[in-house]
C-alpha cells in the first residue's frame, strides 16, 4: 500500500492571517502526505492551527504559498471530493435525516432518483438511524446527529473524508461508542480519511499514521506510523505498544505546548511566576 501514489500532497504550504502590519503566520512550510485508503490522524497542541489545516485541505481557504494536490490535481475550492465532517454538527435543521443525507446527490444530480433512495436508506441503516429516517436533527441525540452527519458525507463517496474533531462535545460514553463505530466503518471499506483531533488516545486507536503538528506557526513535527493490529478495539489502548506511541507523542505535544508560554522555560517556572503575579 505504501507504494500506491498518495491521495493528497501538501507541499510547503504557508498561511498567515491578520492585517498587513500584524500578520501572524498560522502555518509555515507544512508538508504532508495523505496516503490512499489510510486513516491519517492529525494532532497538535490547542490553537496550533488544526482548523486552518482542515480549511486548506477542504479548499475553503487558499494557501499563501505552496501547493495542495488532490489525486495529482491542485485543490481549487470546496467540493464533494474533499468532504468535511464538521466539529459541531452542520446538519440542516430544516431537513429530516433522509433529506439531509440525500442533500448533496440531489443537488448535484449525479445519482439517479431511484438509486438514490436505495443508497440513502442503506446508508442510514448502516449508521443505525433507520427508525429516525424522518426525524429532524433537533429531535436526535448528539451521537445520532454525528452518525447522520457521517451518513450525509459517506453517500457522496468522497475521495478524502476530512473529520474535523467530529466527536467533540459528546459525553464520554457516546464518544467511546462513536469511536468504536467509526473504527469498524473504516475497517469495512477502504477509504481515505483525515481525522483531526485534540485527543491523543482517539488519534492513536483510529490512525494508520499520526501526524504531530508543532506549535504555531504549525508545521509537521513528526509522522508516527501506528502499527497496532487490525481489526482494532478500544482495549488495545492499554497495550504496551499503544502506551509507547502515546508517551512519545505526548512528549512532543508537551514540548510544543510549552512554547506558547513565551519566555518561560518549563511548566514549573510558569506556575511559579503565575503564583507571584500581582
Amino acid at each position: 500500500m505504501a507504494d500506491a501514489p498518495d491521495m493528497m500532497q501538501v507541499n510547503n504550504v504557508s498561511k498567515a492571517f491578520g492585517e498587513d502590519w500584524e500578520r501572524e503566520m498560522v502555518i509555515e512550510n507544512l508538508s504532508l502526505k495523505i496516503r490512499r485508503n489510510q486513516l491519517t490522524a492529525i494532532v497538535g497542541p490547542s490553537g496550533c492551527g488544526k482548523s486552518t489545516v482542515v480549511n486548506l485541505l477542504a479548499g475553503f481557504e487558499k494557501p499563501d504559498s505552496g501547493q495542495i494536490l488532490l489525486d495529482g490535481r491542485p485543490v481549487t475550492g470546496p467540493s464533494k471530493d474533499t468532504l468535511v465532517v464538521f466539529q459541531e454538527t452542520a446538519l440542516m435543521p430544516w431537513l429530516t435525516t433522509y433529506q439531509n443525507v440525500t442533500f448533496g446527490p440531489k443537488l448535484r444530480g449525479d445519482i439517479p432518483r431511484d438509486q438514490l433512495k436505495e443508497a440513502a436508506d442503506s446508508i442510514i441503516e448502516t449508521v443505525g438511524l433507520k427508525e429516525f429516517r424522518d426525524k429532524y436533527p433537533l429531535q436526535l441525540s448528539g451521537g445520532m446527529q454525528r452518525r447522520a452527519e457521517l451518513a450525509r458525507a459517506l453517500i457522496n463517496q468522497p475521495l478524502v473524508m476530512i473529520m474535523d474533531e467530529p466527536f467533540r462535545g459528546l459525553d464520554a460514553m457516546t464518544r467511546q461508542l462513536m469511536q468504536e463505530f467509526y473504527m469498524r466503518l473504516c475497517e469495512q471499506e477502504a477509504r481515505t480519511n483525515v481525522f483531526v483531533t485534540s485527543e491523543l488516545e482517539e488519534a492513536i486507536i483510529l490512525a494508520d499514521s499520526l501526524v504531530v503538528l508543532s506549535n504555531r506557526p504549525a508545521t509537521v513535527r513528526e509522522v508516527v506510523q501506528i502499527d497496532l493490529p487490525r481489526p482494532r478495539n478500544l482495549e488495545m489502548l492499554s497495550s504496551s505498544q499503544a502506551y509507547e506511541y502515546k508517551r512519545h507523542a505526548m512528549e512532543m505535544l508537551h514540548e510544543e505546548a510549552l512554547k506558547s508560554f513565551k519566555g518561560v522555560g518549563s511548566s514549573s517556572d510558569f506556575l511559579e511566576s503565575y503564583s507571584r503575579r500581582p
Binding site: P78, K80, L83, F86, L91, L107
Partner: peptide, 26 residues
Amino acid sequence: DESYFRAAGCLGSKKRHVFINVVVPG
C-alpha cells in the same frame, strides 16, 4: 450559521442551490 454554507459548499451546491436550500429556510 456559517457551517451550513460550508456544508452546502462541500456537498457541491451551486450558488442558486445555496440560496434556495440554505438562505431561504435558514
